[in-house]
């Protein structure tokens, strides 16, 4: 393999990897505050892209993206308020089935609103054939957008959770909900907020990736599986782990193209998921003791 080709694959891996990482962080935010894996996480990404594409007819690109993110956040809030909020300590099986139902319903809404056609946002800068040379490889400027926006999101989330009082309250709910409630934190609102946040970052990722990977009504399931793989790989609940694992999975996938046929690419990431679940369910970076204490 030539150096140029190597770098090309590496950059493709980093691009997809950062998207997987964002989806995984979306999983983590909701998991941390509720203990629920939201199977509809991939649908947030789909909604973000699709709404932005529709809005583009009426307004310039930045405004369309902004509005799409806000609308998806509203959808996230609505889902939490309608389906999650009023359930009193539901069983895990029940929550799994409900979020799967939400995911199917979202997909069906999308197919009836937007149809089955594949759409995409225009490139933010330049067009399909614009490229920037990096170390001999040529990449689209959109790749830089994806990586930069994902990186920015991770940093902003980190700052939000560390320094703002709302972020601290969410973390308090994550570590001990009862104690947080006793300290006067409204835990129910924090759960809604976690859905809003995770819908928002999903939607933004959906907008940034749309020019490269396109948007379609059924893109959610595949993304959710990969996002979940990454979340597990990095240790459920850990954002730093998610970033590392996301990049790892993206790069493995990108390089696997040169070895196995494209049709089996999905099978590879799912096999990684299965192997990780069987061998190290606490993730690559997680500790076994901590995982044993969590509720699955």
């Amino acid at each position: 393999m030539t150096t140029e080709l190597f770098i090309q694959y590496l950059l493709a891996g980093i691009t997809y990897g950062s998207i997987y990482a964002i989806v995984a962080i979306g999983f983590n935010i909701i998991y941390n505050t509720t203990g629920i894996i939201n199977f509809a996480q991939g649908e947030f990404v789909m909604f973000g892209g699709m709404i932005a594409i529709s809005l583009l007819q009426f307004m310039p690109l930045p405004l369309a993206i902004l509005l799409a993110v806000v609308l998806t956040m509203l959808i996230g809030a609505l889902i939490e308020i309608c389906f999650i909020r009023w359930l009193k300590s539901p069983s895990v099986l029940r929550m799994i089935i409900i979020t799967i139902g939400i995911s199917i319903l979202s997909r069906e809404v999308a197919v009836h609103v937007w149809g089955e056609s594949i759409r995409s946002l225009p490139y933010f800068v330049g067009n399909e054939i614009t490229s920037i040379p990096i170390l001999g490889a040529r990449i689209s400027p959109q790749v830089l957008w994806v990586v930069a926006v994902s990186g920015l999101m991770v940093v902003c989330l980190g700052v939000f959770f560390k320094t703002t009082s709302v972020g601290r309250e969410m973390r308090a709910c994550a570590s001990n909900r009862k104690a947080a409630t006793l300290c006067g934190i409204n835990a129910e609102n924090m759960v809604t907020l976690s859905f809003v946040l995770s819908a928002g970052i999903g939607a933004l990722a959906g907008c940034v990736m749309s020019p490269i990977t396109y948007s379609q009504y059924d893109m959610g399931t595949g993304l959710a599986i990969k996002g979940f793989t990454v979340a597990i790989l990095g240790g459920l609940g850990s954002s730093g782990g998610a970033v590392a694992a996301g990049l790892l999975l993206g790069i493995i996938e990108a390089f696997s193209v040169s070895v196995v046929p494209l049709a089996f690419q999905d099978a590879i990431s799912i096999s990684i998921l299965l192997i990780i679940l069987f061998v190290r369910p606490q993730g690559l970076f997680g500790s076994k003791e901590a995982a044993g204490l969590k509720e699955f």
């Binding site: 894996i37 199977f39 895990v92 099986l93 799994i96 599986i225 979940f228 597990i232 799912i270 998921l273 299965l274 679940l277 369910p281 509720e295 699955f296």
Partner: peptide, 11 residues
């Protein structure tokens, strides 16, 4: 168990 089982069988 739980989410892990669901995701593994889905996979």
């Amino acid at each position: 168990k739980g989410h892990y089982l669901a995701m593994a069988t889905l996979g």
